[in-house]
């Protein structure tokens, strides 16, 4: 029993070290005073201060944040609709095609998606005169398309776990479908909507290839800016901006963990309270009755 367990645990820790060591090293070296990236010259925050003077970089950061925000909103809406269709509407014409369209963007190589979207935008500009120039809107469309697939996967996983009897009960009591969706389904899947939104935000902030294809002159995003500098080799300023991004992402992750944990603790307390309640009322604990408040929470 023990040998196999030890091997997989060992692999887990080795794997985690493999994943995190390079990032830790990157952060440490961003505080290196020496301009030579590989020689340690003492601690310093010079490179962070230098970032503030880099106007080009800062405008790229804001452009990327803007696109990421729009993408997160649109991807959550589209992805949730797609997930709802896939899990709740089991029969309609073209369902297989629909499923394929939702999952294929997850794996499609970015160079193919990027090239094809650019050619679409060029063809549309020729035929319809729109988009006249490529920029934030075209990047937003590209990002929304692949992010909504990620949202659809996350949300449909949650939709499948849901107890459908609550929705059915509301329908039986005469609620219209859209009302059921807004008042019952949405609140129950809210955590996965938030998770999907954050994921889309991060994915959009992170994308280089799609943005390079569909952006126009003057709409450089942060990854494009970083890439053009990284190509020339390792630079201390890039270490600093990379560390900042890592910091933001780890903060994000910590918050996600914190909130899911709190929700879990609350849920457990609600279950506990319900069990005690039931025990006090009927004189004996009844686990079945305790189950319903837990699913609502």
């Amino acid at each position: 029993m023990k040998t196999g367990f030890r091997f997989s645990t060992f692999m887990l820790w080795a794997g985690l070290i493999f994943i995190y060591a390079p990032m830790v090293i990157l952060v440490i070296y961003s505080f290196n005073a020496s301009r030579l990236v590989t020689v340690w010259g003492g601690w310093s925050v010079n490179w962070y201060i230098a970032l503030l003077d880099n106007n080009q970089l800062i405008s790229a950061v804001f452009r990327s944040l803007e696109i990421a925000l729009y993408t997160a909103v649109a991807a959550v809406v589209l992805g949730t609709l797609a997930a709802f269709v896939l899990t709740r509407i089991t029969r309609f014409k073209g369902r297989t095609l629909f499923g394929g369209l939702v999952t294929a963007p997850l794996v499609m190589p970015e160079v193919i998606t990027g090239l094809s979207l650019l050619l679409l935008f060029v063809a549309m500009a020729q035929l319809l005169g729109w988009p006249a120039e490529r920029g934030i809107v075209t990047i937003w469309i590209a990002h929304t398309t692949f992010c909504s697939s990620y949202v659809a996967v996350v949300v449909s996983a949650r939709l499948r776990e849901l107890d459908m009897s609550i929705e059915e009960a509301a329908m039986d009591l005469g609620a219209r479908p859209w009302k059921v969706f807004l008042l019952i389904t949405i609140p129950m899947i809210a955590p996965s909507l938030a998770a999907g939104g954050m994921m889309s935000f991060a994915l959009s902030l992170d994308d280089l290839v799609l943005a390079s294809f569909v952006s126009g002159p003057g709409s450089t995003t942060l990854p494009m800016e970083v890439f053009s500098q990284v190509r020339l080799g390792v630079k201390p300023e890039i270490n600093a901006i990379a560390s900042l991004i890592l910091l933001v992402v780890s903060l994000f992750t910590f918050l996600v963990w914190f909130f899911t944990r709190r929700a879990e603790v609350r849920r457990r307390r609600a279950v506990q309270a319900a069990i005690e309640d039931a025990a006090a009322n009927s004189g004996q604990p009844d686990p079945r009755r305790a189950g319903s408040p837990a699913t609502v929470a």
Binding site: P22, M23, Y29, L203, D206, V226, V230, I238, T253
Partner: peptide, 19 residues
């Protein structure tokens, strides 16, 4: 811990290896 890196720019993680 496994998921966090996928939220971090792939560019940055690859760049870390360059150094």
């Amino acid at each position: 811990l496994i998921m966090m890196p996928t939220w971090t720019a792939i560019l940055i993680r690859v760049y870390a290896w360059m150094g």
